[in-house]
């Protein structure tokens, strides 16, 4: 698995994505073998696999940002999210499947942060696939032990008066953080507000951007 490809930059200055033209590994051969056998046995089709990848690629943190912006501006939706976030987000077209989704609201006095200490559970329907650090030993181990230190590594330094609440996800229950709404955005539209909502602010390792930061 080529995790060391970052020194090879494309003409645009970005690392090349690990793709088809890398030396075959044993585990990649196993993926090809399993996939071919499943197709030959009629369990799935190449088209179904491609469609599933398209569905996954279409899930980005912009889904979650739209939910947060609506939460900030639409009192009926806020009530629905507090009552049952799985149902409320499904109605927006972001189906979480059989899992339970809980929205946790951050304020000036309370900061929420989400981890999965046992594995990598994450609200994929709203944020896409989790970043590598979310699955790392350090994040999983330390977030429940010393959340303020972890937050500081992400550049989030909270006053001692702000309570920090850590939520540990499970296979069946996922959390999304509703970050505190930035000051100076009273008359903003949902679309404009959504641009302030970062992926990390919905995990709790970041805050929503201020209007000044966006400018």
């Amino acid at each position: 698995m080529p995790h060391d490809h970052h020194e090879h930059l494309s003409p645009s200055g970005h690392p090349f994505r690990a793709d088809n033209d890398v030396p075959l590994t044993y585990w990649q051969a196993m993926e090809i073998a399993v996939r071919e056998l499943l197709i030959e046995k009629g369990v799935t089709t190449a088209a179904e696999i491609a469609a599933q990848i398209d569905t996954m690629d279409a899930r980005t943190p912009s889904n979650g940002a739209a939910v947060v912006a609506r939460f900030w501006t639409d009192p009926a939706f806020r009530d629905a999210m507090r009552a049952d976030a799985s149902v409320a987000t499904r109605a927006m077209g972001y189906d979480i499947g059989p899992m339970k989704l809980i929205a946790v609201e951050s304020t000036a006095d309370l900061h929420n942060i989400v981890v999965c200490t046992l594995c990598s559970c994450y609200p994929r329907n709203l944020l896409g696939l989790p970043p590598d650090w979310y699955k790392s030993r350090a994040y999983r181990a330390r977030t429940v032990r010393e959340p303020r230190s972890v937050l500081a590594e992400f550049g989030v330094v909270l006053p001692a008066s702000t309570q920090v609440r850590v939520h540990d996800s499970t296979a069946d229950m996922r959390y999304i953080v509703i970050p505190a709404r930035p000051a100076g955005t009273q008359d903003w539209t949902q679309d404009a507000l959504a641009a302030l909502v970062t992926r990390d602010s919905m995990i709790g390792t970041g805050l929503a951007k201020s209007p000044e930061a966006l400018a």
């Binding site: 995790h3 970052h6 994505r17 690990a18 590598d132 999983r140």
Partner: peptide, 20 residues
Amino acid sequence: DMGGLVAGDVPRADHDFALW
């Protein structure tokens, strides 16, 4: 079951997922 154990800094390098 690593929650609460001592560990180092959170590695921040990320990668886009390969097709496989």
